[in-house]
Design a protein around this nucleic acid. Sequence first.
DNA 1: TTATTTGCAAATAGTTTGCAAGACG
DNA 2: CGTCTTGCAAACTATTTGCAAATAA
Lengths: 148, 148
Amino acid sequence: MEHRLDRIKEELHAQSYKLTPQREATVRVLLEREEDHLSAEDVYLLVKEKAPEIGLATVYRTLELLSDLKVVDKINFGDGVSRYDLRKEGAKHFHHHLVCTECGSVEEIMDDLLEDVETVVQDQWGFLVQDHRLTFHGICRACQQKNN
Amino acid sequence: MEHRLDRIKEELHAQSYKLTPQREATVRVLLEREEDHLSAEDVYLLVKEKAPEIGLATVYRTLELLSDLKVVDKINFGDGVSRYDLRKEGAKHFHHHLVCTECGSVEEIMDDLLEDVETVVQDQWGFLVQDHRLTFHGICRACQQKNN
DNA sequence: TTATTTGCAAATAGTTTGCAAGACG
DNA sequence: CGTCTTGCAAACTATTTGCAAATAA
């Protein structure tokens, strides 16, 4: 955990960004809530518990910065909010999501299921793939069982 | 073209929605600009050319309605705007997109490349897939050539 | 006729920005 | 120290909503 925090600190320093307490608190929240898909507002409220003086604008600016550094990915599940998802260390690609249309839960798939598909896209469409976004909408295991 | 318009009219009637000139004008714009990925504002401006008295709120309401009827899909490429994309007739799934990070162009892939992946998701994660969203980010053919 | 639908304007919600004060390196 | 960063409030943008008037079926 601390290890990953240090790596992110290094990333910031490498680009000569300052490491402020606000930025550190924000990163800590993201690490602690890695499973979740927090909105800026969510992050703000959680950071506020540790560092009550932080402002919402700073959270937005920090998340934007981390997004530029590719430490987090900014995603959008179609409700009007952007969500921020920590990228796995060394992950080449964004991970996939399973969004349940009944209970709204979001599951993550870390495996890269798209290697073959990317080959097709590169070969048949001549498109040089850098990254991808894949979300499945459907019914999660728990809701399927509930329905029976 | 008229055929598809009629089908959409039927869809509306089947759910006992009224067929107003505003709704028809909106659908016509979507059909004419099927290749594009129009925002609500884009649609509004185009509809206004034919029916100047239409209001932006009506366009939003119509697009929302068409989205509920699964006539259009609401998508989000990460800029702050929702875009509306006509679903192909009888298409089970949303089509895929190739977004160029250099010129911003958006190409569509109609083939369903995800059948195998969906099987994996259903079998290994127990997730009952209803639909998917897949977008690749990368460099389009034209920009690759330009770079050499 | 009569429940829907519209246009307008005002309200919201999420996000961004200007700026003076504060703090990291 | 000087520049980067912050907090606050105001500005902005996309979208939604309330309501009285208009209209499709």
